[in-house]
Nucleic acid binder design. Structure first.
Lengths: 366, 366
DNA sequence: ATAAATTTGTGCGTATGTATC
DNA sequence: GGATACATACGCACAAATTTA
């Protein structure tokens, strides 16, 4: 055979491309085996072998006595609807709360949930998407990985879109995927709110710790610094600590982390810190306590998310509260509506300040 | 064709079974297409169609010019391994803790987790299994539904076994599925421990509330009643409340539940209760408090699982502690070993009494 | 090292079965 | 019932890869 490739694969490729290009309408389509036999000048067996490939890919349905049908849009399943959920982690931090909101709504609607963790790794994301794409789900909720960098998996998402599998993003989104809605927190606004609160409470030497490889961190940091600047507060570079997923485990043991801690030890150079989230707020407290040079109370700290830990630390964390369960429910409900064919707009939810003990008024510090 | 089934499927089934039974050794095996043609008296094409099925299931490898090889042990995948996890609920009660243990281990081994909830409904279970069976996962962790009644989905599990997908059950198991290992708590032993503890602390009018449609509840109840009997304590029927998943939401609003509460209100008829788990222990406390007739402190209560709520109630719950994270990790590790082809034994883990305030010594009651 | 034999892969023709319209 | 279209089944020929003599 010319080209080395067997005939049936070449036929399959041609048909695959034509289907992708929309040559065939959605209803009853694809020529009969007999027609294809004539068109390509091969035997009917070869045509069947080619179509078997397409069927494997979920591109066509063969119905005995009726014909071979092109399947644009999601595979019609008998029985229950299935929804895929991709998060960075399943049982970490506030994920269980968000998932609980999603699960509740899905259960109410009798929809099966299928949950996988990406560990914030785009390769993992690709791998899971590949299976989801294989006609496995009727809808998809995704928490992006390293959203500040865009995604190498845009093709996978476009592929889902081509099959009419609705996708909604939560907590962040990939800017290159225009058509897909998202539900996020107002991260830039949260950063501004944190800055405003720090200044309102009388702090004059603020610092901050923000993650830079996801959209949430980048936006929170941007908002924070902009608000500070607009209110006339210049923050020296040494008081700013940026980090990425890589050093999330031992941030305050890195050179940059240690330099930051030294700044934070001295009340003359730093009197308050806005932290990417409650985990890092707690880690900062621990690191300060371990060094034992300043009492934690002497450094004002504000976190993000209002995670469980924020209630349990001493002093209890002042933080911007993430709606968690309500957030998850909203995402789930929007996805269900999309699965009903109703277009959904993106949503940016506001933060709510949760005042506890870690960011006291300046003159109340002992 | 006789039997309605096409020949190629029947040939495939026979071969599948023989592979499962180990008729073929692992190295070079499976007879050649020509031999199979003679053996089954069908054409070579039909044999090839049958073998194509097995190949789809990942049971055999075909190598041109060489032969068709049986693949015992897990399917070699390109890319990552995928593990399916089926639990009753994802975010309820102690599930997140168990899942966290599983997730940690899976992440350490670079295995993708795929999580679905059955809502304790065998139909849901079947639905999810059907997709998992479709060559989607390399291993499966299952928390059974209504395990006391056996399962209508035994076929699905056998189907998985035939395809060399290892399955491990947790918290309970289906007795009809002999070959598959499980990791469970020693529920009967826990029931006995609860009974012994109640008597040791001087209670003389015990009652109990147990679920009957899952193995855990049935075993806990059995152990409890047996231990009581062996220690010479007869429990009147009115002090025993059995229930099923259906009335889990409003147990103490059912006729039987209300009768039980009336018994519990009177110190002469009941002075202590062993509860199926911590949720029902808390519900019982609430129901008693709502009726307002006795102070909760006057009724000794012991729960199961050491869930988060058990620390937060007043009085804090005395309970038998479930290892949760360690339990999940153990399950995950065993499954991974099974995926490496190492047979695993079932495990029954012991309970550990967590003494708090809800089951005080009798003479210390005010 | 080469040739021959073996084994799976590809391709075609034909006949018949069965579901759908 | 008849026409149509996919499903199953068989036989044959040759190609390509591997193993064996």
């Amino acid at each position: 055979m010319l080209e080395g490739q067997p005939k049936y694969l070449r036929v399959a490729d041609i048909l695959r491309r034509e289907i992708a290009e929309g040559v065939f309408q959605d209803g009853q389509v694809l020529m009969t085996e007999e027609e294809l036999r004539c068109r390509f000048g091969v035997s009917r067996q070869t045509v069947r072998q080619a179509i078997a490939q397409l069927e494997d890919d979920g591109l066509v349905d063969r119905r005995r006595g009726s014909g071979t049908y092109v399947r644009h849009g999601p595979r019609k399943r008998q029985g229950l609807l299935h929804v895929g959920v991709l998060t960075s982690y399943i049982t970490d931090y506030i994920s269980p709360n968000i998932l609980s909101g999603i699960e509740t709504v899905m259960n109410q609607h009798g929809v099966v949930m299928n949950l996988s963790a990406t560990l914030n790794d785009p390769r993992m994301e690709k791998n899971i998407l590949a299976r989801m794409t294989d006609g496995q789900v009727d809808g998809l909720i995704v928490e992006p990985c390293r959203s500040a960098e865009g995604t190498p998996n845009a093709d996978c998402y476009r592929h889902l879109a081509e099959r009419n599998v609705p996708v909604i993003f939560m907590n962040a989104y990939y800017p290159e995927l225009k058509g897909m809605p998202h539900v996020i927190m107002d991260d830039a606004g949260g950063g501004r709110a944190a800055a405003a609160e720090i200044l309102k409470r009388g702090y004059r030497k603020p610092g901050c710790v923000f993650k830079t490889d996801d959209m949430q961190g980048a936006e929170r940091g941007r908002g924070f610094l902009e608000e500070m600047k607009e209110q006339g507060m210049e923050i020296p570079e040494e008081n700013i600590l940026f980090f990425t997923t890589e050093d999330r485990m031992d941030l305050f043991d890195t050179p940059a982390g240690r330099r930051f801690l030294e700044q934070a030890e001295n009340p003359e150079t730093m009197d308050s810190v806005a932290c990417y989230n409650d985990i890092f707020a707690v880690r900062l407290m621990e690191a300060m306590r371990k060094r034992g040079i300043r009492k934690p109370r002497e450094l004002g700290i504000i976190g993000f998310d209002n995670a469980m830990v924020s209630e349990m630390t001493r002093p209890a964390l002042t933080t911007l509260g993430h709606p968690k369960e309500a957030f998850g429910s909203l995402v789930a409900e929007k996805l269900l509506r999309m699965m009903d064919g109703v277009r959904q707009e993106s949503v940016r939810m506001p933060w709510r300040l949760v005042e506890r003990d870690s960011l006291p008024l300046v003159n109340s510090i002992v």
